[in-house]
């Protein structure tokens, strides 16, 4: 133990080196971290194997109930206008929404991290140009861009019935669109961190022993931005779910794979609010709110934990 750490004022180096399990433990100790993780865990379990809980996704053909039945012992959350069990729909919707959110996050983070690290590390004109591109995507309203891009990507991708992770191509289009429109803020954040890491002595040392740019970016920059990536990814996930919801709500979704947004759209189209059929739109709405809330809680708690400036008074 260094003398400084013994003094009780933990040196900043100590904080940077904690492992993943420690972070998880600390996260669970915070109230917001605990609540968020619990909620997420529930939904993730549901999303992995919804069939285990509610059986196969009910279609118009396999609907088990009558039109717009209120919640009862048989249908805990009532039915929709085609008689499909709402609980069944909502739980499957969890899978679709979360998988889309996950895939979109992967795309966003992948692009954002690569652009961020390369721009931040290489610098010079490459950085200048990449940043202008990033700014462009940052400034254009996500939604408008999504609307414009979706039919274009649809043309490119085609609406084949092939599935990726159990998601049809039509929704993969949404994944790609969300990825394209969201990567820029991740890139900015990662680039910021890379800029400050680049100046640190261990990067200089890597250069002195003859490491090339690729090696340094992989072995020195990336491991030190992982924490930031994780915190950012969690928040990105929340954003992706919301964006997907919005896009589905305006009709870009797939009625055969109803995400929560799609369910909300269907509820609106069936006139559920006017008819007082609250059980149609409240469950998917509640699902969205809870999941986004949970991600935000966890993401913000992680941000606090991993943020090196703890504001200790000296």
């Amino acid at each position: 133990m260094t003398a400084a750490s013994v003094q009780g004022v933990a040196p900043r180096r100590l904080r940077g080196a904690v492992g993943l399990w420690t972070i998880l433990r600390r996260l669970l100790r915070r109230p917001e971290g605990l609540i968020g993780m619990v909620i997420l865990l529930v939904f993730i379990v549901l999303a992995i194997a919804p069939q285990a809980f509610v059986g196969q996704l009910q279609t118009a053909v396999t609907a088990t109930g009558h039109r717009l039945e209120p919640p009862s012992g048989v249908h805990l959350l009532g039915t929709d206008e085609l008689g499909r069990d709402m609980l069944n729909q909502t739980v499957h919707g969890a899978r679709i929404s979360l998988v889309i959110g996950f895939l979109a996050t992967v795309v966003t983070v992948a692009i954002g991290v690569v652009v961020g690290i390369v721009a931040g590390f290489v610098g010079g004109w490459l950085d200048a140009i990449l940043m202008r591109i990033t700014d462009f995507f940052l400034v254009i309203p996500t939604f408008v861009l999504a609307l414009i891009l979706t039919p274009i990507i649809q043309q490119l991708v085609g609406s084949a019935a092939t599935e990726v992770f159990g998601i049809r191509m039509t929704l993969i289009v949404i994944v790609i669109v969300i990825g394209i429109t969201s990567w820029s803020s991740t890139a900015r954040i990662i680039r910021s961190q890379t800029l400050s890491l680049r100046e640190r002595a261990f990067v200089d040392r890597a250069r002195v022993i003859g490491a090339g740019g690729g090696h340094i970016m992989r072995r020195h920059i990336l491991p030190n931005v992982i924490n930031l990536i994780v915190a950012n990814a969690v928040l990105t996930f929340a954003g992706a779910v919301l964006t997907e919801t919005t896009l589905s709500f305006v009709g870009l979704g797939d009625p055969f794979q109803p995400s929560w947004g799609q369910l909300l759209e269907a509820a609106r189209a069936a006139g559920a609010p006017g008819l007082g059929a609250w059980w149609y739109f409240v469950p998917p709405g509640a699902g969205i709110v809870l999941v986004v809330l949970a991600f935000t809680l966890v993401g913000s708690a992680l941000d606090d934990l991993l943020n090196p400036k703890r504001g200790r008074r000296r």
């Binding site: 180096r13 002595a201 261990f202 040392r205 890597a206 490491a211 090696h215 491991p223 030190n224």
Partner: peptide, 29 residues
């Protein structure tokens, strides 16, 4: 020709073990 740096707290990547740190020049070259 090699360099010894000033700040022993900053020269070592906190995510790298000592072994990796000393091994790195051999691997890179």
């Amino acid at each position: 020709v090699q360099l010894i740096f000033q700040d022993p707290y900053e020269t070592l990547n906190p995510k790298q073990t000592i072994n990796d740190f000393v091994m790195e020049p051999l691997i890179v070259n």
